[in-house]
Nucleic acid binder design. Structure first.
Lengths: 229, 229
DNA sequence: ATACGATTCAAACAATCGTTTGAATCCGGC
DNA sequence: GCCGGATTCAAACGATTGTTTGAATCGTAT
């Protein structure tokens, strides 16, 4: 951590235990949630001493935050990079909604597909964190997403100049909801049907289904409520 | 509970402590989550003895399930009743997608609006439960939603005969995601904008925004993926 | 070889957890 | 009046929690 005088061997040893802790914590937090996962369970799975967590990360909360940043930071960076790339290619014209949406979805899907980076498990964990009321988590996620969300909202605003900004905010909210809920992969509604009966890599197919749904909702006409009864 | 010989006075006293426990547990589970909320905190807030939870509900898990059923059962019943009502009025013709969607949204919004029934707080709690991996919760929610989801999927299938059943399942999944995420009201993306700057009852407005979004997504054309890069 | 900082380790810390117990208390029916 | 089941209560149960401590161990530079 501190860049000053650090023996390389010791640093290497510390790095591997930190990684082992992050891997084990990611899997166990995903499976049981934050509160229900004990440090003893994590350190046992990682094959390190119990005190290692507090030594390397300071506390259980900071370990959890490190688990999240390890994946979330690069993914959001990929998203804004991809968006910037689309904008550069589109010359002076604004980027289309479908492209902007792709810039949001593709890095998330790529993360979900990569087992070496946590795969679906991590996104399930992220989906849990979204709904967690713990203040330290809410603050953390707000900070993590602030620049990315602002960036994409501006891009969508240019692509949909006729859409009132507040309406756009809501629709971005809906999009993040459907996306996180889907990626989180809660099997609450698995009973709807035999979702994914065994297709090999249906991540591509998932994107083919989710993107049109979100795009249609995003570009929907401003509607009056069809009142019931 | 057991309908046999039961003193009325004692039963009434038991009923009020059960209600006090349910109210306190609902508020505290919403605020801190299931694992992070202790029975001592709940019983203290309810003004009853610690042992009352295990006496009246059997365990902390069963208390949580009771908190959920108290609101969820009537709400889902309202949904299928409303849908049946729409179908009855539509005579032999199938009900339109907008009506079916209304039958899903209106009872949820009505619950969110009613402070006497937990209001937004309960739906935030429900949103948390959706993302919780605890097996007893997943089983419980599956049972709670099974009949309602099957009912609505059949209705949507009649309204959208050209949509492949698997595609419909996915879109229902997306709808439940956007809905639960929105109703849960996680303020992760509150930074998008000053969502709700103080409008009095924006529940009606929320429905006016959410319904067109979901309807457009539901009836979107089957699309090819606009691949990125 | 020696000394030093970084890391690991076993052990204990105080606190809190969900649950159980057995006696005290309440209240309606006889 | 008293009896009996339903309910409440204070207290303790054993287990587990996150965190801290101080000594043992490692690897490296002198």
């Amino acid at each position: 951590m501190s860049g000053r005088v650090m023996p390389l061997g010791a640093a290497r040893g510390a790095a591997v235990t930190k990684d082992k802790l992050l891997d084990a914590a990611e899997a166990l937090f995903m499976e049981h949630g934050f509160e229900a996962t004990s440090l003893r369970l994590i350190t046992a799975a990682a094959g390190v001493n119990l005190a290692a967590v507090n030594y390397h990360f300071g506390s259980k909360e900071e370990l959890f935050q490190s688990v999240l940043t390890r994946r979330l930071d690069p993914m959001n960076q990929q998203r804004v990079d991809l968006l910037a790339d689309f904008e550069r290619r589109a010359a002076p014209h604004p980027v289309g909604c479908d492209k902007i949406l792709s810039a949001m979805l593709i890095p998330a899907l790529a993360l979900a597909r990569d087992p070496a980076r946590g795969g679906n498990n991590f996104l399930r964990l992220l989906g849990r964190a979204y709904a967690d009321p713990a203040p330290f988590l809410r603050q953390f996620l707000s900070d993590q997403y602030a620049v990315m969300i602002a960036r994409f909202k501006a891009a969508f605003g240019r692509a949909l100049p006729e859409l009132p900004p507040r309406e756009l905010s809501w629709r971005l909210h809906f999009i993040m909801g459907a996306l996180s809920y889907t990626l989180a992969g809660t099997d609450v509604l698995k009973l709807i049907e035999e979702l994914r009966p065994g297709e090999s890599s249906d991540d591509e197919r998932l994107l083919q289904r989710l993107a049109p749904f979100l795009l249609a909702g995003l570009t929907a006409p401003l509607g009056d409520l069809p009142d019931g009864a």
